Amino acid sequence: MRSARLEMALEGGLLPVPAEGRVAVLRPRLGDDLAGLPKDRVEVVTGFRPDFDWFAGRGFRTVRAAEGDYAAAVVCLPRSREQARGLIAQAAGLVVAGGPVAVDGQKTDGVDAVLKELRGRVALSEALSKAHGKIAVFPAGAGLAGWAAAPVEVEGFRTVAGVFSADGVDRGSALLAAALPAEMKGKVADLGAGWGYLARAVLARDGVKECHLVEAEADALDCARDNVADARAQFHWADATTFRLPKLMEHVVMNPPFHQGRDADPALGLAFIAAAARGLAPDGVLWMVANRHLPYDRALGTLFREVQEIGGDAAFRVTRAAYPVRTR
Results as ranks from 00 to 15, higher is better:
Gly21Val: 10
Gly196Met: 10
Gly110Ala: 09
Ala142Asp: 12
Ala9Trp: 00
Ala224Asn: 12
Ala193Ile: 07
Gly105Arg: 04
His251Leu: 04
Val74Ile: 15
Val101Arg: 07
Gly93Met: 02
Ala178Asp: 12
Glu215Arg: 09
Gly146His: 07
Pro139Phe: 14
Val63Met: 10
Val25His: 02
Val75Glu: 00
Pro257Asp: 07
Lys247Glu: 15
Gly269Trp: 07
Ser80Gly: 05
Val163Glu: 00
Glu117Val: 12
Leu118Ser: 06
Asp170Ala: 09
Gly207Leu: 11
Arg79Thr: 13
Phe272Pro: 01
Gly120Asn: 07
Ala145Gln: 11
Pro246Leu: 04
Val208Met: 01
Ala299Glu: 14
Cys223Tyr: 00
Val122Glu: 02
Ala276Lys: 04
Leu118Asn: 03
Arg200Lys: 15
Gly192Asp: 08
Val74Asn: 00
Leu115Arg: 01
Val188Lys: 01
Ser125Asn: 09
Ser165Thr: 07
Pro16Met: 07
Glu126Asn: 13
Asp167Phe: 08
Met1Thr: 15
Leu280Val: 09
Ala66Asn: 05
Val169Thr: 15
Ala271Glu: 08
Ala150Cys: 02
Asp206Ser: 15
Val318Ser: 00
Gly146Thr: 12
Ser173His: 05
Phe157Tyr: 15
Arg121Gly: 04
Arg49Thr: 09
Gln308Val: 14
Gly168Ala: 13
Met184Glu: 11
Gly13Ile: 06
Val45His: 02
Arg79Leu: 08
Leu245Ser: 05
Leu6Asp: 01
Met1Val: 15
His293Arg: 09
Gly156Pro: 05
